[in-house]
């Protein structure tokens, strides 16, 4: 298992690799969460869920189970 958005630490950036289409709502893609895009983890809600991310210019909050479905490579 590689990294997913859920394994980012606050402030870290990753590049989206791929994800299972059935597990990801279309409208997340439409908001710019696409393979090849940079995603940065901005905040984690107090109870470790949801995650507050910035991707492709959009600031979004997504739940951890969605985040776990999106594979990334971490940028150093």
């Amino acid at each position: 298992m590689g990294d997913t958005i859920a394994s980012l630490l606050i402030g870290e950036i990753g590049i989206i690799q791929d994800f299972c289409l059935d597990a990801i709502p279309l409208n997340l893609l439409e908001m710019g969460c696409l393979p090849g895009k940079e995603v940065r983890l901005l905040q984690i809600a107090p109870l470790r869920d949801p995650l507050y991310i910035k991707v492709n210019g959009s600031h979004l909050a997504i739940r951890i189970e969605t985040a776990k479905q999106i594979n990334i490579t971490k940028l150093l």
Partner: peptide, 10 residues
């Protein structure tokens, strides 16, 4: 399905 996305506007 637990789908949830919300934009955090400025």
């Amino acid at each position: 399905k637990g789908l949830f996305i919300i934009e955090m506007p400025n």
